[in-house]
Nucleic acid binder design. Structure first.
Lengths: 344, 344
DNA sequence: TATATTTGCTTAAACGTTTAAGCAAAAGTA
DNA sequence: TACTTTTGCTTAAACGTTTAAGCAAATATA
C-alpha cells in the first residue's frame, strides 16, 4: 500500500503529452496557459495525488517559505499565544513557522539562530533571552539581508522592527492603582536592569513613586531573575525589613506567584497587609488564592503585528530600504483580589 | 554591509582551482580526498563564510532533515517539555523540528498534516487532538512511507509506534491512595471515553473501585472535556448529589483546578470533606491552595523516546519492515495536600 | 618488472521546480 | 491582404548540492 515514488510535474506532463513547464504554469494559473489545459492539468494532478516538491521550488525561487520564531520558552501563555497568532497570519500567506526555544540561554539562542539560517528561513521573529548581551548573532541575521522582527524583549541598539507594550506606562498604571487603594509604601521586584523592558518598568516605577511623593527607598527596589524561586526569596527579603512595604509590584507573574506563596504561608493578609500586583496576566493569576492583579500584554495583537511586519518586508523588493517601525501597544491593568483593598 | 550573494561550493572550488565535487567531498570528510585538500577547503570555506545550502542538499538527497511535531497545544507544561526533549535529541542528529498546534481541532490537525507533508518533513511525531475521530490523514502519512510516531494521545487502530504512560495503572494508584486515606465514595471526572487514554483511566478507575468493594455509582462517573470551565461545572454537579462523594479524581489537571476553585468558593474543606486528585502534574498543581495531588507523566522521557524512535526509523533502509513498538511508561503519583487527609 | 590496487581527483548527471527566451499559430488591425 | 499583436505552448538553463562513474597517477604486490 506504500507508494514510495512521488508524483512530479514531469509525470503529469507525460500523461498529457505537454511540457513540464506548461504544467508548472498551469498549476500557477499563468495567463499564458489556456483554460482547457489548466483544467486538464489540475484534473490529472488530483488523480495522481500530486504534491508539489517544496524543496525544489524553494531552491529555484531562492526562498523557503519558512519563518523562524525564537522565544525564551513556549510554555508560558504569553509566548504560546504570540506564536499561535504569528502562525495564523503567516499560514494564510503560505508560510510555515519553525519554533525554537532559547530557555533564556544566550548560547542556545545563538545555536537557534544558526539552525534557522541553515534551514534557509525567509525571516526571523524573535524575543530575546534574558541572558543575551552580545548582539553579534542578530547582526549576522541582518547582514544576510534576512528580515528580523523583535517583540517583547528587544534592543534599541539593533535597528530593527519591534512590537511591544509600553512598559513605562504600565508601571505608572500599577503604582497609581496601588496609591488609589491607599498604599503608601510600594516595593518593586523588578527584572534585570540591562533588559530594556524591565529597565523601563523600573523607570516607570521610580517616576510614578516620585510623582506621588512616596518614599523611594532603595530597600524597596530589588532586581530579580523573576523565577518563582527568586520571587519567594525576594519577598522573604522584603518581609525582613524593619519597615515593611504595604504593596509589592512584581515585574513578572511567576515571581509574583512565588511572592504570593510566601505571603500565604506566613499568613499575611493579601491585600490588607500587603497588596500584590504581577505582570503578564498568565492564566494562573486568575486561579490562585487570592486572585492576582496583573498586566495584560495583548499577546494576540503582538503576534499578529509581528507577522504582518514580516510580510511587509517579504513583499518588498530586497533593495528597497525599509522604514523602521517600533509599535508600542498600550497594556491593560487587570485588577483582582490581590490588590483590591477597598473591596475587602 | 549587506552581502546578498551567498558563498557556494563553486566559489570555494574556483578559489582553489578544484572541482565543486571535490569541495563537497572535502566538506564531508570523504576518505578519497587528501588531508591537504580538506584543510585548504575548510580554510577557504571559513574565510568566505560559507553556509551550506540546506535546500539544495535536501533536494538532492531527498530528505529535508526536518521533523514535524503536532501537539494539541504547546502551552501546557507536559507538551512543551515533550517538545523540548524531542528537540534536544533530534538537534544532535542534525534534525530540526517544526512545531504545529491543533488546538484540539480535527480540522486544524488535518491542515497541520498537509502543511508538514508539503514541507517535506522526514517524519512526524504527534499527539492527537481530542476531536480526532477519522484516521484518514494519519493513514496518508503512513501511505507516503513517512515515519509516524504517536505519543500520549494515540490510537491502537493505527499500527504505528507509540510512547505513553500506563493510564490504567495510574487510575489504580490513585484510587488505592484515596482508599488508604479513608475515602469511601470516590468520584471520577473523566475525559472522552472515545479517546483511548481517557478510556483506560476510566477502566482503571472502575476496576479499582470494584476491587475495593466501593460503590460504583453512575452518578460518580462523569465524562468531561477537561477544560477548567467544565471541571467547575462537573464539580458543581457532584456537589448537587444527595449523596456527595468524599473524593474526586479528575483525569486532567486543568479540570481539577476548576473543581478546586468550586470547592474553595463553597468553603468545602479539601481534603477533609472532599479529597482531590488531578492528572498531569502541571506546575500550577503545586502552586494552588491547597497544593494538588497529581500524576507525573515523565514528559521528558516521553519526548526523548519519541525522538529516538524516529531516529530508529530514519536510519533504517526504507524497505526494511519496522518492528512496531509500543512503549508504556509507569507514571508516578505525587501526593500533595489536596488528598493528604491523614496529615491534616 | 609487470600487474593490481589505492589514492585523489574530475566529469556529468541528477534532485523537481521555475522562468527567460523563443516560436508557431491564431487573432486582431489597417 | 499584409502587418502586428496575442495566445499557448516548448526549449533549455538555472537554483546548489550530491554522487555514480571514470580516469590518471601513485603505491603496493607478486
Amino acid at each position: 500500500m506504500i507508494n514510495k515514488k512521488k508524483t512530479t510535474i514531469k509525470d503529469i506532463a507525460s500523461v498529457l503529452k505537454i511540457s513540464p513547464a506548461a504544467v508548472s504554469k498551469a498549476l500557477h494559473d499563468d495567463s499564458r496557459i489556456s483554460a482547457k489545459t489548466k483544467a486538464a492539468v489540475k484534473k490529472v494532478a488530483a488523480e495522481l495525488n500530486y504534491q508539489p516538491n517544496h524543496l525544489a521550488s524553494a531552491l529555484r525561487k531562492g526562498k523557503s517559505n519558512l519563518v523562524g520564531v525564537i522565544v525564551p520558552r513556549a510554555n508560558s501563555n504569553f509566548f504560546s499565544s504570540v506564536i499561535q497568532n504569528i502562525e495564523e497570519v503567516l499560514n494564510k500567506e503560505g508560510y510555515n513557522i519553525i519554533i525554537t526555544q532559547s530557555h533564556e540561554s544566550f548560547k542556545k539562542e545563538c545555536n537557534n539562530i544558526d539552525t534557522l539560517l541553515f534551514t534557509q528561513v525567509d525571516g526571523i521573529i524573535a524575543s530575546m533571552a534574558n541572558e543575551t548581551i552580545s548582539l553579534d548573532y542578530y547582526e549576522k541575521i541582518k547582514s544576510k539581508g534576512i528580515p528580523l522582527i523583535l517583540f517583547d524583549r528587544g534592543e534599541n541598539d539593533l535597528n530593527v522592527d519591534y512590537i511591544g507594550i509600553n512598559d513605562y506606562n504600565s508601571s505608572h498604571m500599577i503604582v497609581e492603582h496601588l496609591v488609589e487603594q491607599g498604599c503608601k509604601r510600594i516595593a518593586h521586584i523588578g527584572g534585570y536592569k540591562r533588559t530594556r523592558i524591565f529597565n523601563n518598568r523600573i523607570k516607570g516605577y521610580i517616576d510614578a513613586i516620585k510623582k506621588h511623593n512616596l518614599p523611594l527607598d532603595s530597600e524597596l527596589l530589588i532586581e530579580s531573575n523573576l523565577t518563582i524561586e527568586d520571587g519567594r526569596e525576594k519577598m522573604i527579603q522584603l518581609l525582613a525589613l524593619k519597615n515593611r512595604p504595604d504593596a509589592v509590584y512584581v515585574a513578572g507573574d511567576y515571581a509574583a506567584l512565588g511572592a504570593l506563596q510566601v505571603l500565604n504561608e506566613q499568613n499575611i493578609n493579601i491585600p490588607k497587609d500587603i497588596a500584590l500586583v504581577g505582570f503578564g496576566n498568565e492564566p494562573f493569576t486568575a486561579m490562585v488564592t487570592p486572585a492576582m492583579s496583573s498586566i495584560e500584554q495583548h499577546s494576540a495583537e503582538i503576534g499578529k503585528l509581528a507577522a504582518l511586519k514580516f510580510l511587509e518586508h517579504a513583499k518588498k523588493e530586497p533593495f528597497v530600504k525599509q522604514t523602521l517601525n517600533k509599535v508600542i501597544l498600550d497594556a491593560e491593568l487587570i485588577v483582582r483580589d490581590s490588590s483590591n483593598v477597598k473591596a475587602q
